[in-house]
Design a binder for these strands. Structure first.
Lengths: 137, 137
DNA sequence: AACCCTTTGTAGCACAGGCTACATGTCGAA
DNA sequence: TTCGACATGTAGCCTGTGCTACAAAGGGTT
């Protein structure tokens, strides 16, 4: 996880990004649900991600080991401070990209789908450029 | 590969994209080298992707099984027509994204790196919007 | 109490994509 | 021609992320 920059080549960087995508997507989903006052369970995540409940359980265990979950009342999911921070970052990036694609004329649904795929692969530099672009337009 | 649209949910679509990324990256690398008159070998790909030569060999075998490689003289890599088509598509998308990020004010190196990560995750709709944006500016 | 449904959990498998260690092949120089 | 270097290939392992099949736990209905 999150260790040093180390000068990776381009492809190594992309691999690194992939490795943390799932965790981000999970905490993001949990975060959004909590924001909306809903309480996610395994079955919900199964639905959201289109995988079996078994896969959800195991992935949750992994992100718990990464310290992103807080142990809430049994059956309920809660985020640790780091989890919440990561989720907020992800959600903000996602929103930014959706607004950006919308500004370029992309439909709502497609903007959302593409943001989901692309949000893990843009540097702070590029995100900054996108923010500036949105401010100007 | 490339089978039916089937109405995947957002995350299923992203997973699908990941599954074809490596193949695209490999044929793209081979394609570009051939364009420039160089002849890639395993050792070059190992360098480019930052993995061991064993990983390169196995990945090549897989993309060969997918019909993307043509059997060239031993020790040399060549693309099948489908491989070439896929490579060209990838390379074009990559270039488009680099130009786009550059137009937004992103540095050359970062534009290239981010394009590498993002190029597999944008829909035709969004790519079209980007093309239109670049024409206007 | 017995039953069913839903939810969650466990066992165990497959495949992709990493790796190291070892084996072979080829080629230029001594 | 033998040796050493480099390229390529094989064997076998690990982890992540998917799956199905089965097990257990809980709640509602009859």
């Amino acid at each position: 996880m999150s260790s040093s920059p180390e000068k990776l080549n381009v492809h190594e960087r992309v691999r690194r990004q992939h490795a943390s995508e799932l965790a981000q997507d999970y905490v993001e989903a949990i975060y959004i649900a909590l924001e909306e006052g809903r309480n996610l369970r395994v079955a919900d995540l199964q639905e959201i991600f289109g995988v079996s409940h078994v896969t959800v359980i195991r992935t949750l265990r992994r992100i718990e080991e990464q310290g992103l979950l807080a142990n809430a009342k049994s059956g309920e999911l809660a985020l640790s401070p780091e989890g919440r921070k990561l989720a907020k970052l992800s959600a903000d990036r996602h929103d930014l990209l959706v607004r950006f694609f919308r500004a370029l004329g992309v439909s709502e649904a497609q903007a959302d789908a593409d943001a989901e795929g692309a949000e893990h692969h843009l540097s702070e530099e590029t995100l900054g450029a996108i923010r500036r672009f949105l401010e100007k337009s």
